[in-house]
Amino acid sequence: MNEHPTFSATPSEPTQVLPPRTRAGSGTVVTVEGGRRSHGVVAWLIALVVIALLAVVAVIVDQTFQARAERNVADVIATSVGADASTVGVTIHNRPFLAVLVTDELQGIDVTVPKATVARDDTTVTFRDVKAHASGIRHARQSSQTVAETMSATGRIDWPELSRLAGGKISYNDDTGDTGRVTIVREMSVLGARVDVSITAVPGVEATSRRVTLSNPSASLDGIPIPDMLLKPILEGITQRFTLPDLGNLQYDSLKATPQGLEFSLVGTEVKLSDLTGQ
Results as ranks from 00 to 15, higher is better:
G192M: 02
P203W: 08
L214A: 01
S209E: 09
D222P: 05
V205L: 01
A201D: 04
T200N: 04
S218F: 00
M229F: 12
I226M: 12
A207N: 06
V212I: 13
I224D: 06
V205S: 02
G223F: 06
L230M: 14
E206Y: 07
S209T: 15
L214C: 02
D196P: 05
D228Q: 15
L235E: 02
G204Q: 05
G204F: 03
K232Q: 14
P225M: 10
T208P: 09
L191E: 08
L221H: 01
M229Y: 10
P203F: 02
I226V: 15
D196L: 04
S189R: 13
S198A: 11
L231K: 11
P225G: 13
V197G: 01
V195Q: 10
V195D: 04
E206R: 13
I226L: 14
I234L: 15
E187H: 12
A193D: 02
M188L: 14
S218A: 13
L230Q: 12
P203Q: 05
I224R: 09
A207E: 12
G192W: 00
I199Y: 09
G223V: 12
A207T: 13
D228K: 14
S209N: 03
I224V: 15
P227C: 06
S209W: 07
S215Y: 05
V212Q: 07
G192D: 03
V205G: 03
P217M: 12
I234Y: 05
N216F: 10
P217I: 12
A201L: 06
P225A: 07
M188E: 12
T200W: 03
S218E: 11
D228A: 15
S218R: 09
G192S: 00
K232V: 14
P227I: 04
R194F: 04
D196V: 04
A219H: 08
G223S: 14
R210L: 07
P233D: 06
L214G: 08
E187W: 06
V197W: 03
L235R: 00
V195S: 04
S198H: 10
L235Q: 04
V205E: 03
P233H: 10
L230F: 14
D222H: 05
I199F: 06
R211L: 05
D228E: 12
S198V: 15
A201V: 11
L221N: 07
E206S: 05
L214Y: 07
A193N: 03
A201E: 00
G192H: 03
L230D: 12
P233V: 04
A193E: 03
G204P: 00
V190A: 00
N216W: 10
V212D: 02
E206P: 01
S218K: 14
V197C: 00
L231E: 07
V197P: 00
R210C: 04
V197D: 01
N216I: 08
S220N: 15
P225W: 11
L231R: 13
G204L: 09
